[in-house]
Simulated assay, not measured.
Amino acid sequence: MLLATWGTALNILVFAALVAAVIYLFVLIVRALKKYIGSKEMREEKQAVKRTLGETLKAHRTRCQMTQEFEAEALGVSRQTVSKWENGVSHS
């Protein structure tokens, strides 16, 4: 009878250790995700997603050192249209 109670107690301890390990791993994962979400890389990615089409168009144009005239000609629209897109005045 004494052996059976020790076996049960051992099973309970092993189960408790496994539960504690799972909880500890969960806490570590949550901490890592919180750190990643707050990281500079993630903030920049969120900011890029929030950009409007005009902001994105202007960022690409300036990065490639293109003028509005060049971009307008490539897209088959007027320079004023590109300017309106970039400034958010017109969506067409």
Rank of each mutant, 00 (worst) to 15 (best):
L3I: 09
A59K: 07
I29C: 06
R63Q: 11
S78P: 00
S78E: 03
I12K: 10
G38S: 04
A17V: 10
M66L: 15
E44F: 04
V22Y: 12
T62W: 05
L25Y: 08
L53I: 13
Q80K: 11
T62Y: 06
S83T: 09
L75E: 05
Q65Y: 09
M1D: 12
M1Q: 14
G54L: 01
N11W: 12
A59Q: 08
N87C: 03
V89A: 02
L57T: 15
A74W: 02
V49Y: 09
V27H: 08
F26L: 12
T62R: 14
S39P: 03
W6E: 11
L33N: 08
M1R: 14
K50N: 10
R31H: 08
T5E: 15
A16S: 14
K84A: 09
V14N: 04
H60L: 15
A9M: 14
K50I: 01
E55Y: 01
W6L: 15
A72K: 03
E73F: 02
G88T: 05
I12W: 06
G7K: 13
Q68R: 07
R61I: 05
Q47K: 10
I29T: 11
E71C: 13
T8I: 15
Y36M: 10
G76R: 05
G54M: 05
T52R: 01
L57Q: 05
M66D: 04
L2T: 12
L10F: 09
A16R: 11
V30N: 07
L53G: 05
R31D: 07
V30I: 12
K34P: 00
A9C: 09
A72W: 01
V27K: 10
V14R: 10
T8Q: 13
I23D: 03
R51E: 13
A9L: 15
R79L: 06
S92P: 09
S39W: 03
A16D: 11
R43G: 02
Y36C: 04
Q47V: 03
L3A: 13
K35M: 06
